[in-house]
């Protein structure tokens, strides 16, 4: 306890937005307060915050999956979330574009701000929110449609592309724009070379890794500002993984990427900052990737990273 307090004063003395202070009154059990106060979750970064999460609590029925998580995610950077299985990384990610609303047993308390605007409040346009905050899921889930249709699906439904019968009859079809978009997204997702000769084949005929890259391409098609990725490379071979990592690197120049990964080396390679969740749904440490991996403040994080537990 004393050791951690010293560390806090050393590194974060300038910080006056310490969420641990703000959280203490609202947290439910005394034990949780002690535990989280213990740890190091406060972090000052350069640049603006794209997403600001405060006191996020998620319950699935009686199951307390996320406990008072507060963290700010800087824009145009890569933030990695690591932690043992079942610690709530996916849950956290799904809160950022309100996908957890779709789980009827989920109860979400706390605040998430996108560009300073609260997304957990009445009257938020979920369609607009999810267009701005895109998501790639843990397991590939392409639609049972052609590759081309998979990519064009989002823009078509948003009315940005019109290739319907009427448009074709009126000679206003956006087929060329669509094909250009399909090619750009597939190239960005490092899939173009493999599928450019079978764009009209069903996407379910692709391999698992190809399907996952297709899902990334599909996510890019609606031009999101934030991309949430839930272990996007778990089904990929090293070459495709390297391609995806390059892609993430490129994306980070324009987009804000939040990525869950089980692969420590990957997190260390691609991310600018890393957040470590540990079992029980707590955010235990958040900081510059180099610092988290080389010199973690929390002993539990050090144990986890060096493989002693988790």
């Amino acid at each position: 306890m004393s050791e951690n307090t010293t560390q806090q004063t050393q590194t974060a003395s300038t910080d006056d937005r310490s969420p641990t202070d703000g959280r203490s009154p609202t947290t439910t059990t005394g034990e949780t307060v002690e535990q989280t106060r213990d740890e190091w979750t406060d972090y000052e970064f350069r640049g603006d915050a794209k997403l600001a999460v405060e006191d996020l609590d998620v319950h699935y029925g009686d199951d307390h999956a996320l406990k008072g998580v507060s963290m700010e995610i800087p824009e145009e950077s890569v933030t990695a979330l690591i932690g043992p299985s079942g610690c709530g990384k996916s849950t956290y990610l799904r809160c950022l574009n309100r996908m957890n609303d779709r789980v009827s047993s989920a109860r979400i308390d706390g605040s998430v701000k996108l560009d300073g605007q609260e997304i957990y409040r009445d009257g938020v346009n979920l369609v607009e929110l999810r267009k701005r905050v895109g998501m790639v899921f843990q397991s590939p889930n392409p639609f049972p449609k052609t590759i081309r249709e998979n990519i064009a699906y989002g823009p078509k439904k948003h009315g940005d592309l019109d290739t319907g019968l009427l448009a074709r009859l009126l000679n206003r079809s956006d087929a060329d724009e669509r094909d250009a978009l399909v090619e750009r997204c597939l190239r960005d997702a490092a899939l173009w070379d493999e599928v450019n000769d079978r764009l009209d084949d069903n996407a379910l005929g692709l391999s698992g890794g190809q399907q996952q890259r297709l899902c990334i391409a599909r996510c890019l098609s609606v031009d999101p500002e934030v991309i949430l990725m839930d272990e996007p490379a778990s089904a990929l071979d090293p070459i495709a993984t390297a391609k995806i990592e390059d892609l993430i690197d490129d994306l980070a120049e324009e987009y804000t990427v939040v990525i869950v990964t089980h692969n420590m080396q990957q997190a260390a390679r691609i991310s600018d900052q890393t957040a470590v969740f540990l079992t029980g749904g707590e955010l235990v440490e958040y900081g510059d990737t180099d610092q988290v991996f080389e010199d973690p403040h929390s002993e539990r994080v050090e144990d986890y990273i060096t493989g002693k537990f988790g």
């Binding site: 574009n97 779709r102 929110l129 439904k157």
Partner: peptide, 18 residues
């Protein structure tokens, strides 16, 4: 029909009816 399809569509910001 797998829920994954519905999730994928919702995550693209497509409305429920669509």
């Amino acid at each position: 029909v797998p829920d994954e399809y519905r999730d994928a569509s919702a995550a693209l910001g497509v409305s429920k009816w669509q």
